[in-house]
Amino acid sequence: MIRAIIIEDEQPARDLIKHYLTAHSNITLLGEFADGFSGLKAIQELKPDLVFLDVQMPKLTGFELLELIDETPRIIFTTAYDQFAIRAFELNAVDYLLKPYSQDRFNQAILKALERTQKEPLSQNITKLTEHVLEKQNILDRVVVKTGSKIKVIPVDQIIYVESQDDYVMIYIVEGKYLKQQTMKYFEQHLDPGKFLRIHRSYIVNIDTIKQLELYEKNSYLAILSNGAKLKVSDSGYKALKSLMKF
């Protein structure tokens, strides 16, 4: 028996999936969830085998949700229209349904999702997929992080600075700091270049938070930020800062 959940914010869309599922007696529906947060919680607690996941939802999008789970169940995405996502689906051959879809197409997707997981780990595909979608979004407007069991969505303009920590980055905001598995290069490319600057190999800074620059040794500066942090500024970082802030 396959245990499934639906994460989808529109009632009619959920009704349709439920109706299509009546043709599959081998699938039990454990529950339906109307936003990203409750969907995430359900995946962690119920550990379903199969998830019907909408992309655009309140609180967390389908992709943001996937970034936050460790063990990925079999996923069938449902989306209405999202150029980046559709391209990403095609490249990564993950099952997806374009709304509106037929019972036949739905059956195919279920068949595909169930077959695939037996041969190869789907989670790898999912990682590739989310990476691909994230890459395509040029400028980030928010970042999702996880601390223990809590999820935090950080609007990028609240970020003070990002510090590199081996395979992770530490994101500093007023309320604290959050670790996220992501590269510095990724943040360098996807944070608004008019606002964020890599001032050092280890730091990307929100230039609005820079209080002052202090001469540290000859030709070497420290940036003092609104939260009191003092960060080294490299030579090239100083030059870039100078041209961006025009001093």
Binding site: E10, P12, L16, A80, Y81, K99, P100, Y101
Partner: peptide
Amino acid sequence: LFNSLNSISS
């Protein structure tokens, strides 16, 4: 448009 069509389908 597509979400509305999906609702209609349902």
